[in-house]
Design a protein around this nucleic acid. Structure first.
Lengths: 243, 243
DNA sequence: CGCTCTATTGATGATTGTCAATAATGGTGG
DNA sequence: CCACCATTATTGACAATCATCAATAGAGCG
């Protein structure tokens, strides 16, 4: 699995014959441009995010998992947002030095280059409205994350993370909710403002409490989503499961 | 001073005869609407931020200091962004329960209600572009803050905060850079993801190191902006000043 | 002048980070 | 198919940071 691309979602409203998954911006490309521009990245591959190109060239995640990352002053990485299959990488995201779009696993992107049509599109209210809508969504998501990093402790962050990812990327599998996250503990730490050892410890506690079951370090089943949500909201740990 | 409004900046490009300070959106209001809609708030006053109104009704800060706040699951407050005189409260900011625009001191806002013209403006690319531009700016600022909360320790957060506010709200005064912040330690703590006692301690350390001088708890002079910037970027503390 | 809210400071504990060692995983090549 | 290797994950010990509780001091406002 690791060397090959993960499965792709079904075709969507995107005119690129399903090549771009749910890219709200594809429809503004003229028919001649409506062909997929797939970009395959392997884990760790980074695409620089320049402020200029960010408004003319967009990426939709077709499969895999991509992260918009920033560098702290001391060089450490902070993941600003995660985008799974079917999501558009937030337009208006900050670009510049230190910022990049990074693949966390084997990832296929659909590149939407609207630069040749920038002049025309800038006068298309529907296009700019779509742009604003996406930026607005991104703002709402990152605001939620700011609250998480500013006001939640470790257990709450990890629980909230699992809930969020389960909702966005999980899929039912024999009655249980299965979640395959192509992320290392370090990736999670960089997303949550913790360090990898702490993430590992907290995932261990969540496992021992019987809230999740690990099939591998990156694949798990959510056993008690309710308790997880409670924990995310500052609730207490449930008693450890007997088994 | 506390009961009266702080001084206002000079008139800007805003057509409201300088009533709105630098509001990029004012110019889209028809002439009949180009009269000030001042809203005076005293410290602690909160305006609910609904997702719907957020796109039709905007606020520019004419004087004072306003904060977009969110509530953590446990009820604690997290300040998402600060807006001083001359700044437009970020459009596209998330609304909904727990979110509000709160005055941190006596504050006068200029309310820009474009709801009656929403239909027309939605078809004006220049308007939507201005909206996207503002949302994009907000996204860049909040991303920077996410890095701060996720990857900076207390001293670095406080130093970065002082640098940021000095740049945005400070004014030269007899060779020194003076900064009057209408914020309590608790406000700063809610902005920085710390608690008030920690903020107080860290400000004390910054003071003892000779980087700032306090004229009152909310008014200070930046004595060594360079050392402050170094500290914000993870540098070491300079030796304590003799005096 | 006194009152209330805010700020400071101290003592203490909990959480998290750091360093280090071991175990497990996943991929590679024999 | 199995052994090997590099990377990742886990776990422990310890230190540093930050939060909490509490008491005192100071500021702003009536």
């Amino acid at each position: 699995m690791p060397r090959s691309l993960p499965p792709e979602p079904p075709a969507s409203a995107c005119p690129h014959a399903g090549a771009c998954a749910g890219a709200a911006l594809c429809r503004f490309a003229p028919p001649a441009e409506q062909v997929p521009h797939p970009v395959d990245l392997e884990r760790g591959a980074r695409l620089p995010l320049a402020p200029v190109t960010g408004r003319r060239c967009f990426h939709a995640v077709r499969s895999g998992l991509a992260a918009v990352t920033a560098a702290a002053p001391d060089g450490r990485r902070q993941i600003l947002c995660l985008n799974g299959a079917g999501e558009l990488v937030c337009p208006g995201a900050p670009g510049g030095p230190g910022h990049a779009l990074e693949a966390l696993g084997p990832t296929r992107l659909c590149r939407i280059d609207l630069a040749p049509h920038a002049a025309r599109l800038a006068r298309d209210p529907a296009f700019v409205e779509a742009l604003f809508h996406e930026a607005s969504e991104g703002l709402a998501r990152i605001s939620e994350r700011l609250v998480t990093l500013g006001r939640r402790d470790g257990p709450s962050r990890v629980a909230a993370f699992l809930c969020e990812m389960a909702e966005r990327l999980g899929h039912a599998e024999g009655g249980a909710l299965r979640l395959a996250l192509p992320m290392t503990r370090e990736d999670m730490a960089d997303y949550l403002g913790l360090n990898p050892e702490t993430v590992s410890r907290l995932l261990g506690r969540v496992r021992k409490a019987g809230l999740v079951r690990f099939l591998s370090p990156t694949s798990m089943e959510i056993l008690d989503a309710r308790a997880l949500a409670d924990l995310a909201d500052g609730g207490a740990w449930p008693a450890a499961a007997p088994a």
